[in-house]
């Protein structure tokens, strides 16, 4: 066991955990933040996607000990306080989720793409949003990313 400090959604959390435990399970079980989902456990599906310093990563295979105290972890619970992130607004407007289980990871992947590429093209989306959704919401996910881009631009203007 190891005593670690994690910066989760802007709050420092002290945890005493097995250092080999994946970040996903520290979030879900040690911290009780269940928005980030378990689905495959082998970094295939992306349901566990969170941001480390704004970059999307798959938390189901990342040992918590690999996350430094200074790294800013953002989970779906911290994407915004009030559903005001452009991705959340776009997802609400287009009614993107079906069962919704993959959507926290999908939205974090989308938000991460937009952090890196505010003008992401369809080709960028194809390459970088590789999450699995078995309900098949991809068409609206794609529309949602483009709508989020529009929302980002209109709020900046």
């Amino acid at each position: 066991m190891a005593k670690l400090n994690l910066n989760v959604n802007g709050v420092t959390k002290a945890v005493d955990v097995d250092p080999s435990m994946p970040l996903l399970w520290v979030l879900r079980e040690t911290l009780g933040m269940t928005g980030t989902k378990y689905s495959c456990g082998i970094a295939q599906c992306g349901a566990c996607t969170v941001h480390l310093d704004g970059q999307p990563i798959r938390s189901c295979v990342l040992p918590v000990s690999a996350v430094s105290e200074s790294t800013k972890i953002t989970t779906i619970e911290g994407l915004s306080e009030d559903l005001s992130h452009p991705v959340q607004k776009a997802w609400a407007q287009l009614d993107v989720p079906q069962c919704g289980y993959c959507q926290p990871g999908m939205m974090m992947a989308a938000a991460g793409l937009l952090n890196n590429k505010p003008n992401a093209t369809d080709a960028d989306i194809d390459r970088e949003v590789t999450n699995i959704c078995r309900c098949g919401t991809f068409q609206r996910v794609r529309e949602g990313i483009h709508l989020a881009q529009d929302i980002m631009k209109s709020t900046k203007a």
Binding site: G35, Y38, E77, L83, Q88, D95, M107
Partner: peptide, 21 residues
């Protein structure tokens, strides 16, 4: 119409079976 169950799917607050504590 918009679905009644969308918003809680957008911030991680919906409790699925896997999330029960």
């Amino acid at each position: 119409l918009k679905r009644l169950d969308t918003l809680e799917k957008l911030d991680g607050s919906l409790i699925y079976g896997a999330d029960i504590q």
